Amino acid sequence: MSTRPTGAPGRCLVDLSAQDRLRGGAPARTPRLRVLCCPPAGAAAGYWRFLVREDVHVLGVQYPGRENRFREPSAPSLTALAAEAAEAVAAAPWTSSGVPLVVLGHSMGASVAAELASRLEHREGIRVALLALSAKTAPGAADPQDPGDEDLRTGLDPQDPGADAALARWLRRLGGTPEAVLENPELLALQLPALRADLRLSGAHDRLPAPVPAPLLLLRGTGDGSVDAAGMDAWGPVATGPVQRREYPGGHHPLAAHRDRLLEDLEAHAAPGRSR
């Protein structure tokens, strides 16, 4: 039985830089860095639009159940998401350009990014210049977030009449979701099925992939109560290169507020010789 989602591989990779050029009419430039981004649970590829600028090529992995894949069923596993994305990357015309490739994942996306980088290296022959993982406890490590959180447990059961309200309370504590969405039942109802599916996949993911021979950058918000330094350090075995750690002021979603610093860190730690 196949472990991949049923959507066409090309639908799972969104070129956010190309979209930005189309809107602004700007000519394409040779990028100094290419960043392949995996969004957090419930989010779409457009989560990473804040990273786009002229000299950085930003691509977002699009999971089923949102935006252009709204009607597609959830993937059976995080490894299936990574397999589909790796296939799409391998078929992309820019894979042999020589631009350093960074694989970046935030929250649940960190697990997808680790699996994706491993597949690119070991199955597709595509070198990763840097693996950057943000705001996620590694599989198998102790999670500081209470697994018995009542709102989260209630919110994951769509049959519970209070599920949507409970999940909205949990999202509000976590931060990162606009109040306009949390206070609008119709908007919330559109987003919660994908979020629930992602959270179940994330909770079921209990392994580290084969390590990549690349540097590892571990990112965390200083005020993020959902993950501690030990949980981030447990990602160490996913890469055999040097490990660096960076903390940005903020909670669970600090990256957009520190875009320039994040891009500087990504470029500084990407191995320049690791490009195909």
Results as ranks from 00 to 15, higher is better:
residue 275 S to N: 13
residue 177 T to S: 12
residue 258 H to A: 12
residue 84 E to D: 15
residue 54 E to P: 10
residue 181 V to I: 15
residue 191 Q to M: 14
residue 43 A to E: 14
residue 83 A to P: 05
residue 73 P to W: 08
residue 3 T to P: 01
residue 19 Q to M: 10
residue 158 P to F: 04
residue 240 T to D: 06
residue 32 R to N: 08
residue 124 E to K: 13
residue 265 D to G: 05
residue 124 E to A: 15
residue 198 D to M: 09
residue 82 A to E: 09
residue 96 S to P: 01
residue 115 E to K: 05
residue 30 T to H: 13
residue 83 A to S: 15
residue 53 R to M: 07
residue 160 D to I: 00
residue 223 G to P: 03
residue 39 P to T: 09
residue 210 A to P: 00
residue 34 R to K: 07
residue 55 D to Y: 03
residue 185 P to S: 11
residue 196 R to T: 08
residue 3 T to C: 00
residue 168 A to I: 00
residue 132 A to R: 12
residue 209 P to K: 09
residue 106 H to S: 06
residue 226 S to L: 13
residue 90 A to V: 11
residue 65 G to L: 06
residue 276 R to T: 13
residue 252 H to I: 09
residue 2 S to K: 03
residue 37 C to T: 09
residue 101 L to S: 12
residue 213 P to L: 08
residue 98 G to E: 13
residue 156 L to D: 01
residue 117 A to M: 07
residue 89 V to G: 09
residue 66 R to Q: 13
residue 186 E to C: 01
residue 197 A to L: 06
residue 176 G to T: 04
residue 260 D to P: 01
residue 256 A to C: 05
residue 74 S to K: 02
residue 242 P to N: 03
residue 210 A to G: 04
residue 122 H to M: 07
residue 36 L to Y: 09
residue 56 V to E: 02
residue 37 C to L: 09
residue 261 R to S: 14
residue 275 S to G: 10
residue 11 R to S: 14
residue 179 E to Q: 14
residue 57 H to K: 00
residue 172 R to P: 06
residue 258 H to M: 07
residue 198 D to V: 08
residue 129 A to M: 12
residue 240 T to I: 12
residue 168 A to N: 02
residue 232 M to V: 02
residue 81 L to G: 06
residue 24 G to Q: 12
residue 246 R to W: 10
residue 15 D to E: 13
residue 8 A to I: 06
residue 67 E to K: 00
residue 50 F to T: 07
residue 196 R to N: 05
residue 173 R to H: 10
residue 66 R to E: 00
residue 61 V to A: 04
residue 145 Q to P: 00
residue 94 W to N: 10
residue 213 P to W: 06
residue 211 P to R: 09
residue 230 A to T: 10
residue 11 R to Q: 15
residue 187 L to C: 03
residue 215 P to R: 08
residue 57 H to C: 07
residue 125 G to T: 08
residue 260 D to N: 03
residue 233 D to V: 03
residue 57 H to R: 14
residue 227 V to T: 12
residue 259 R to E: 01
residue 194 A to H: 09
residue 59 L to A: 03
residue 42 G to I: 10
residue 25 G to L: 11
residue 73 P to Y: 08
residue 6 T to Y: 02
residue 246 R to G: 04
residue 44 A to E: 12
residue 85 A to D: 04
residue 128 V to A: 07
residue 113 A to D: 09
residue 245 R to D: 02
residue 253 H to G: 02
residue 265 D to N: 01
residue 222 T to K: 00
residue 143 D to A: 12
residue 41 A to C: 01
residue 152 L to F: 13
residue 46 G to M: 03
residue 271 A to N: 14
residue 252 H to C: 08
residue 131 L to M: 06
residue 113 A to Y: 05
residue 18 A to E: 15
residue 7 G to P: 02
residue 248 Y to I: 02
residue 166 A to W: 07
residue 185 P to Y: 10
residue 185 P to W: 08
residue 234 A to Y: 04
residue 40 P to A: 11
